[in-house]
Design a protein around this nucleic acid. Structure first.
Lengths: 350, 350
DNA sequence: ATGAAAGCGCTAACAC
DNA sequence: GTGTTAGCGCTTTCAT
């Protein structure tokens, strides 16, 4: 039984416009009238039709979010942050999972575009030009990705990596492995960048492997390669991979952290409770989601041409737990190991 | 640059109504005309305004889902299933997390109601009357909850528990503990029901503890109680709790499965990769999400008064891994242990 | 097969 | 302050 604004108007003995004004809490409505309207609306259980409102105002009261893989707890963290902040701001949220497909990322944003005031995009795979095209279709905020002219919130992955290297160097490690996540993902590039810079400063050698799927299985695959390379520490692209590494290392009877140190990124819930608890770089997932909503909502209605798009950097920090320890005084096999594993080594910089 | 149906009409030299007909693929449009319209629409990049469509048709092309706790991977599984099936059917999905609050569950559904054609509700906490009220506001499909007149998909938790008990009994266990999840959650009640029935049939004694939060912490809290009760096996309400139990047992130097068997419910990804891998009852999370979408979409537009609401039961099955083993031949402390732990025992049936 | 007109429920000018 | 009017973009009778 859909009750319209006219039903309320009739019951309150005013016109529809007055009802509209009274409910928008906007000015120019006498107190007694407003009370009458509000009472009528409540009695009738009136709920404005959002389609009609949106048709005329052009705003929808909705935002969208698209993530590459919801089964990664990193993104469920982001989604929770987004949803709670959006709800607090009176917005409903459309959700979509692109399943790590660049064209799906684009298609999903497009399909949301007409029903939202903006969308938060976690799109590691879409190209810059795809994203630019999307930015002209609806208002975007990027998460962990930078693109000029588009607002973004990003987490200081490079800084996190610096903390990792400082930690490892202080523990006496001389040579470590980095297990790459998706090759072109901004987060992966940033982590590599931080790695190069910090490792050079600390005179710490490193080898790289990958890219791997940023999942548990990717980690187990990578573990053997890293192990063969004679390093004393392994830095994984993320916690899921680090967990895979831990699992494989246990299978292969390599003691962690005594024989091998392991570090992850994200600080998933599970990193804290696995055995041994994982040393990892905490990424502010929920805070990132909230910040993205704030940025998005702030930018809605703002024509940002010319102006620099606002963006927000969130800091990260290393959580030292039980998978890192001083380097073992084993035979320094470093010099005999190949510079890159037999697997898929990354050779090109970008 | 919003392009309307009139822009398309003008360019195709037809009326707006013809454009509408051509795009709805509906009848009575000459082939050549339709081609012209379609071409014009494509050239202009025309996208119908969903608000306008919805205003007139009454359908939105959206569905909603509300879950109690997205950080529980069970619900992210459901959400993934829902989203992928909805997308395949051309529907967009609104998402909301009620954070385990009954009134939020209701409020969220209400706030979605006007913008969706129906909503999938995972609401363990809302009361029957709240749910009935919601059912009159929009079309609902329940997940793992039953309410007469409301379509539902539910997973055979009791059957899963039967498999657990059969397994444990076959391994020679005589006495086990069940760690309750939320007291009134349908899934918890079903698991208890299955437990009572199967345990009686197998002449297997059991004690209950809880309710506990269905999370890791709940499991660690529960572990000590179960341990003190002299059982040889612990059945946790879900995997998250089972993982907590495992962690606490490890801390307390209790060998799993040699001294204590542990079983969970859900079969989260992590159950397969933790150490030791967890024996657990697989719940079809994504399939549940998909089935819920199917049911919801089938029921949209159907006035179901009188007719029995359709529902769908999904079967579950036990995945035996490494946390269950034959009962140890320890001193049978069973008779000395209290029937319920010193903690919060459940005493009332329902 | 196509066009004209009406109207979905609402808000925003514009009068008074 | 409040009512009247005019649409927002679209679909759907009803003519033709």
């Amino acid at each position: 039984v859909p009750v319209t604004i006219h039903d309320v108007a009739r019951r309150a003995k005013v016109s529809a416009s007055t009802v509209s004004r009274a409910l928008s809490a906007s000015h120019h409505v006498r107190g007694t009238t407003r009370d009458r309207v509000l009472a009528a609306a409540r009695e009738l259980g009136y709920q404005p039709n959002p389609a009609a409102q949106s048709l005329i105002t052009g705003k929808t009261g909705n935002i969208g979010i698209v993530v590459p893989d919801l089964s990664n707890p990193f993104y469920t963290g982001v989604l929770r942050g987004v949803q709670s902040r959006a709800r607090a701001a009176g917005y409903a949220v459309f959700f979509a999972d692109s399943e790590e497909d660049a064209s799906a990322e684009e298609a999903l944003v497009r399909s949301m575009a007409r029903q939202v005031d903006g969308v938060i995009v976690c799109a590691p795979f879409a190209s810059d030009s795809q994203l630019n095209a999307l930015a002209s279709v609806t208002s975007l905020t990027l998460l962990n990705r930078r693109l000029r002219g588009v607002p973004a919130v990003y987490m200081d992955s490079a800084g996190g990596m610096k903390q990792v290297i400082d930690h490892l160097a202080a523990l006496g490690h001389h040579r470590c492995a980095y297990l790459n996540g998706p090759h072109n993902a901004w987060s992966n590039r940033e982590r590599r960048r931080g790695l190069r810079a910090a490792a050079a400063r600390r005179h710490l050698a490193f080898v790289e492997f990958g890219p791997f799927e940023p999942k548990f299985e990717g980690g187990v695959q990578a573990a053997d390669l890293a192990l063969a390379s004679g390093v004393s520490a392994i830095i994984a692209y993320n916690d899921l991979m680090a967990l895979g590494v831990l699992s494989r290392l246990a299978d292969r009877q390599v003691a962690v952290p005594d024989e091998m140190s392991v570090v992850g990124f994200d600080n998933l819930l599970y990193a804290a409770v696995c055995a041994p608890p994982l040393t990892t770089v905490a990424m502010p997932m929920e805070a990132g989601g909230r910040a993205a909503v704030d940025l998005l909502l702030a930018g809605v209605g703002t024509t940002e041409d010319g102006n620099t798009a606002p963006s927000r950097e969130l800091s990260t920090n290393l959580i030292v737990r039980a998978t890192t320890a001083p380097a073992a005084n084993r035979s320094p096999a470093a010099s005999t190991a190949p510079p890159s594993g037999p697997g898929k080594g990354i050779d090109n910089d970008d």
